[in-house]
Amino acid sequence: MTVTLTHYLTLAAVLFCIGLYGVIVSRNAVRVLMCIELLLNAVNINFVALSHYVTPETLKGQIFAIFIMTISAAEAGVGLAIVISIYRTFKNIDMSKINLLKW
């Protein structure tokens, strides 16, 4: 079976679901950040695949993918700084124990 656009979109969907499941069930905050990176990568696959098949001349999807990479690098940096700051306060990065804002 020749590889078409739907194959790439399927791969991205599977990867997105794995990442979302990881975000929900992980208790380690660093692992949650890793799974967020997986989510962003799945979206990037979608953008690049659609760029290849829909606008092969202007490459709009690839440009958008590069913007997403920039934002996700910034997000990872700030997120890890927040995790380190939480670790200083709680001596723990268990997501279910960080509950200052919950009742």
Partner: peptide, 25 residues
């Protein structure tokens, strides 16, 4: 998919920087 620049940026940014940052965290 013919996106060589994005692939290079992916390896530089994600496989290089983000992974190292995760290990540091």
């Amino acid at each position: 998919l013919g996106a060589d620049f994005v692939a290079a940026a992916q390896i530089l940014l994600y496989a290089g920087a983000v992974t190292i940052m995760m290990v540091f965290a």
